[in-house]
Amino acid sequence: MKSPVRRTSYGVKGAPYAHPSPTTALKRARSAPYFFLVPATLLFLLFFALPIGYAVWLSFRKVQVSGLGLGAGAREEVWAGLENYTDALSDSELLNGALRVLGYGCIVVPVMLGLALLFALMLDSEKVRLAPFTRLAIFLPYAVPGVVAALLWGFLYLPDVSPFYFVLDEFGLPQPDLLDGGPLYLALSNIAVWGGTGFNMIVIYTALRAIPAEVYEAAKLDGATPLQIALRIKIPMVAPSLVLTFFFSIIATLQVFSEPTVLKPLTNSVSTTWSPLMKVYQDAFGNGDIHAAAAQATLIALATLVLSFGFLRATNRRNKQEAAR
């Protein structure tokens, strides 16, 4: 126990006799941090823990109807146990949605981060011209709201109204249906890549600018080419930002909602439950079953948590191994 030591030091430094008793002073000193924590804790409880707790509570309940279900008292909320969870896990639509999003993520994340890294390296090279303008031009799509971007691309994908198809038609080239089957994944990924590359590029570019110039000087004196500098110095040194952008991208991919929702009315290929979050939305607001929706939302949150922390732990372990080496 440290308390006797602290008591003496307190007494020595301050005015020991002014305090009513050393124990109250100690209590006050110990409660001070908690006092400062109160606002943050309160906000956390009110706007984070409470709603989540309520959602989890809802996910364990269900509505039980009796008979025809008409009139008062025909409907009551009862305890459902894990029923909503078993239903969600055995629902092939939710699993299929997860698989669709996985396929979509396998295109979006590598392409978007690859492009972002490439653009960042190009902007950082010495020979670049018009850097501020290019940087802004690549970043600009990020400022376009997702719904607007999806609408814009949706119009460009529709053969009958798209200028692309008009040009293809003029030259007698084949006109692929981008809103059907496999190409749909490319069409959706394209919207995400178009919108997200700029943001990730800025993150990586900022990290590149933070590398001290001496490192490059040393490399040049050793006779490294710009390509070697990029591959051997720049990329390893911005690895932490790559991890960060990867992490953000995984979360954004798992939460994909607005792009497929906006494209849905334009085609038969996007169902109302295309992505897991669309299924949650449909169950909550289309079918009016908030209990099933709450269970699914909880499952999606858990999956996101496991995936993102799993990834962070994996990269941390690798970093430690490398540091040890």
Binding site: F155, L158, P159, D160, V161, P265, L266, T267, N268
Partner: peptide
């Protein structure tokens, strides 16, 4: 046809 209604393509058609 088998394409949905109320799309820009449908309007144009």
């Amino acid at each position: 046809d088998n394409q949905p209604m109320y799309t820009p393509a449908w309007n144009k058609a």
